[in-house]
Amino acid sequence: MRTRAFFMFMLVVAATLPLATPSAAHHSFAAEYDADRPVSLTGSVTKMAWINPHSWIYIDVKKPDGAVENWAVEAGPPGTLIRAGFTRDSLAAGTVIKVNGYRAKDGALRANGRDITLPDGRLLFVGGSGPGSSGPGAPPKDPPGEKKK
């Protein structure tokens, strides 16, 4: 049982390695973002672009001096979320979100969004329309619970 659990776990890890699967190799993280410049942003959503191959979330971030910067945050492809039952209205403008990611190498106000949550730690999208997909792997009615670290 432990061996099987391990290999299932590895299957999930493996799928995220660049070039391990075609899906992970669409484009290169290292060629676009700087692993030495992590950013943590909290801001109000101005829009979400549900576009392929990756979606983009735009947020207004207030700087300590009061000036506002509009950041573009790259996220995953929208297909998975659509399959999970979310719609383009699931993230309303004005929603405040917290983004942990890495800054673009060209210095623009752009970051990849490795981890995007609501400021209280709840998951993005949850709270509006919830998942409602069917199929053999029907999703949980409630958002998946995460183990405490």
Binding site: T16, A24, F29, A75, G76, L81, N112
Partner: peptide, 10 residues
């Protein structure tokens, strides 16, 4: 890190 997105999007 070498990867851009977490499992949330997969």
């Amino acid at each position: 890190t070498t990867d851009a997105y977490n499992s949330f999007w997969r």
